[in-house]
Simulated scan of single mutants.
Amino acid sequence: MSFIANYMMLDDNTFDSLFSLDNDDLLEKVNELEEAGAELYCMDKLWDGLHFLLTGTTASTPVEGDELSEAIVGIEMFNEDDEEADFVASTEAGQLADIIVAMKEVDIERLAQSANFREFREKEIYPDIWYDEDAASLRQELVQEFNNLLAFYEKAEKQNANILVSIF
């Protein structure tokens, strides 16, 4: 089973309607929104690696108040009290500016070049792909995903859109 991260732009009404849903209804609604053509960015499987590169921790332990962590996993978790719930989180439109500023301060090229993929393996960063023989490709992919996510957030900010992050 593989876990992928999707980032979806939502208007205020749609976004607000999600907070009253339980886990099953929320997942159904997320799928409906995707099928209806909601603007979406799929990071695929590199979300945990990018989180680790930016923060030094796995995405399973987000860093509260750290805009770079929040860029990857969102700010507010849906159904946080439900241990069986899938990972769905949100970032409100008004919170995007700080995330964008923090992302723009990162020299992602330099950071990716300094990545120690042995450390990724030791920390069991998902997925199990962090091997030195693939280092150049992995570095390039991490940079690309970072830049794509930044562009997606900048577009969302211009549209005053909220972000829904789902990882499953």
Rank of each mutant, 00 (worst) to 15 (best):
M1D: 11
M1Y: 11
S2N: 10
S2V: 12
S2W: 09
A5V: 00
A5T: 08
N6F: 11
M8F: 10
M9K: 13
L10T: 05
D11C: 06
T14C: 10
F15W: 09
F15G: 06
D16L: 11
D16Q: 14
S20E: 12
L21W: 05
D24N: 12
D25P: 04
D25E: 12
D25V: 06
D25Y: 08
L26R: 07
E28A: 14
N31C: 08
E32C: 10
L33E: 05
E34Y: 12
A38I: 07
A38Q: 05
A38R: 03
L40P: 01
L40F: 04
C42E: 12
D44R: 10
K45S: 14
L46A: 03
W47C: 01
W47Y: 15
H51A: 02
F52Y: 15
F52Q: 00
L53H: 00
L54W: 02
T55M: 04
T55L: 06
T58F: 01
T58D: 15
A59V: 01
A59R: 05
T61G: 02
T61I: 12
T61H: 06
E64I: 07
E64A: 13
G65W: 05
D66V: 00
D66I: 00
E67T: 00
L68S: 03
S69C: 04
A71E: 00
I72Y: 00
V73D: 00
F78D: 02
F78W: 07
N79V: 03
E80R: 10
D81L: 11
D81E: 15
E84Q: 15
D86I: 02
V88K: 04
T91D: 06
T91Y: 04
T91A: 15
E92G: 11
A93M: 09
G94P: 08
L96Q: 08
A97H: 13
A97N: 13
D98N: 15
D98G: 15
D98W: 11
I99S: 09
M103Y: 09
V106L: 12
D107A: 10
D107Y: 09
I108G: 04
E109R: 08
S114G: 11
S114P: 03
F117K: 02
F117Q: 02
R118K: 11
F120I: 06
E122V: 07
E122K: 11
E124R: 10
I125R: 07
I125V: 15
D128K: 08
D132P: 03
D134S: 14
D134G: 11
A135I: 11
A135L: 13
A136Y: 13
S137H: 15
S137Y: 14
S137G: 12
L138E: 10
V143K: 13
Q144V: 12
E145V: 09
E145M: 13
N147Y: 11
N148Q: 14
L150Y: 07
L150H: 05
K155S: 12
K155E: 15
K155V: 03
A156Y: 01
E157W: 01
E157A: 13
Q159I: 02
N160S: 15
N160Q: 15
